[in-house]
Design a protein around this nucleic acid. Sequence first.
DNA 1: TACTGGTTTTTGGTCGGACCATATGCTAGG
DNA 2: CCTAGCATATGGTCCGACCAAAAACCAGTA
Lengths: 242, 242
Amino acid sequence: MDHVARLSSRDPAGRRSDVVAEGLARLIQSGGLKEGDRLPAERDLMQRYGVSRAAIREAILALANRGLVVTRLGHRPVVRKPDYEIAIDKVGNLVGHLVVDRKGVWNLFDTRIFLEAALARWAASNARRDDIDELRAALAANRDAIGHSHDFDETDAAFHAILYRIPGNPIYPAVHKAYVEWLVQHWRTMKRGGDIDQMNYAGHVAIFDAIAGRDPDEAEIALRRHLVAAWEFVRSTFPAED
Amino acid sequence: MDHVARLSSRDPAGRRSDVVAEGLARLIQSGGLKEGDRLPAERDLMQRYGVSRAAIREAILALANRGLVVTRLGHRPVVRKPDYEIAIDKVGNLVGHLVVDRKGVWNLFDTRIFLEAALARWAASNARRDDIDELRAALAANRDAIGHSHDFDETDAAFHAILYRIPGNPIYPAVHKAYVEWLVQHWRTMKRGGDIDQMNYAGHVAIFDAIAGRDPDEAEIALRRHLVAAWEFVRSTFPAED
DNA sequence: TACTGGTTTTTGGTCGGACCATATGCTAGG
DNA sequence: CCTAGCATATGGTCCGACCAAAAACCAGTA
């Protein structure tokens, strides 16, 4: 009944902490520990699993690194079921380490252009009436924010976010959030005037018109043009190279 | 200035292990420790950072969980510069925890269809001569493998992999590798005969013909048809109908 | 010289106990 | 009733020790 039997001195399963982490992970995803539940104290767990507290701590740390629990000092670890956003968030700090050069950032930005172009195409073909209405509203908000850098960035991201939401797959919004987080540092540094906002807004208008006009090819073209122009600003944040 | 831990002696912004991990991570990405290098022994690090070995161990474990180092028993941790494949691999074992139900798997498979359809479209428009040749060769190998389940799976994946390689962005192959790993468990379980292979091969032929014929719309349609059919088999591995 | 085998050293993995820092809850005093 | 303060719970850190696996070393042999 108790699958967390004590670990014998000769265990084929690798590190103790891995065994504990695996057990706890299974416990969580099997529903034995629901989201928000606090898992047992370290001193309890070391008795249940028959291992030292160090092993327990390393196991919990592993879970925390995977995003399955959150740890606060003085608190028991709290279970947090992983969703796509957390998953991509976790890989985010890794990606942040490898988009340090222009090539890395371009690879990332390239996939954004590619994915978002496909999303624009999809929207042009499959967007529902209220999707279009939402885009229209976001576009209006974006226009009203021209000249106010912070607000414009907000409404800009909001407009693009709708494209990621239209297919109804929760993975896309998570990816979008990741793109914004990864790339924001590369354009937040540059000063810009209302003319740039004007240009970006015009790009949004073109995208919207194509989608509302149910023209997939034009939607893709408009979006590519818009993002390629945006890339020019991102690349300008890098020192001169090839 | 943001998430970087301050090294102030007054108020350590985080746990000691976090400070150490951050320091080592910075050391790695700054090139102080090149790929393949073995970082100092735990007993050395505890002296350098002036913290206990437990803190060092937790720091190294954190790095290992992030994929920046690999640890083997009796070995010093070996630096492994993160690449896209590792990044997605890391998020992979997380995703594996949340694609337990059909809805989760469908969300994932849906993105694959979406992305791969866009890739097929791209290939139809932008593939070079040798890309086409490679597809043709992969198609032939796939045909010859009909009836041999294992070989067919191999050549099947190889054919699709080419689509991910054509844009020349290393992120796509990494994503493909992840798809295969995440989804393989859901179709490896089902028995199938040569007729299924025949059907899948026919799908590949249709995709290739459309790409070679430079017909983006048809390429996307053919690929969607192919993968939607494949999904039917994936879904059949789930017991209850909802 | 080159190989082979075992011995010593290095190094990660584990353990137990202790102390500290913080959060929570209980309790006594206003 | 409310608040300050103490007791408790719990995570964070440290120490010193031992074990096991891998590596490094070295002597003996062919």
